[in-house]
């Protein structure tokens, strides 16, 4: 077996990860989209989406996960989330004031309801998920080498 194959954890962890990582990502998306009718919301869903990628990093090593979502793309997604949230807020001037709920409310207790709240949830989840993933990648890639002994 080559060097590349043995990177990461053992084959048991890799097999289980291949089965569960999609489910974790799907559960995060579910939590985000149903944030206004059930417990959850953008914050929790964003962190769950981050945890699915962190799961991939822990099991397969950082190269496989960075191929799926690189650091530059994570930063881009985070900025997109911030800009989306701010533009929703600015579009509220169509209804009269900052953050006004200008989209029709729809029928309550259904998925497509509550005006701007689901779109804001998606923006928040992009922001939180991509931001925390870029923090995690930055901390993982930091290679420590203490230099104080060499100086003295």
């Amino acid at each position: 077996m080559s060097r590349e194959k043995t990177k990461g954890m053992s084959i048991i962890v890799k097999t289980i990860t291949r089965l569960t990582v999609g489910l974790v990502l799907l559960y995060g998306i579910y939590i985000v989209l149903h944030g206004h009718v059930s417990p959850g919301g953008g914050f929790a869903g964003g962190v769950i989406i981050t945890l699915s990628f962190v799961h991939l990093v822990l099991a397969y090593g950082k190269d496989t996960a960075l191929k799926k979502l690189s650091k530059a793309r994570a930063s881009f997604l985070e900025n997109m989330g911030a800009i989306l949230f701010l533009s929703i807020a600015l579009l509220g001037f169509m209804g009269g004031y900052f953050f006004s709920n200008f989209i029709p409310k729809g029928e309550p207790f259904h998925l497509f309801s509550a005006g701007i709240i689901p779109i804001s949830n998606i923006a928040i989840s992009l922001k939180v998920g991509a931001g925390l993933f870029s923090i995690f990648v930055a901390l993982v890639l930091l290679k420590l080498k203490p230099t104080s002994e060499k100086k003295k």
Binding site: L139, L142, L144, K145, P146, T147, S148, E149
Partner: peptide, 10 residues
Amino acid sequence: AMKIYEKYGT
């Protein structure tokens, strides 16, 4: 904290 560890070794 990790940058402090890298610089001072403790």
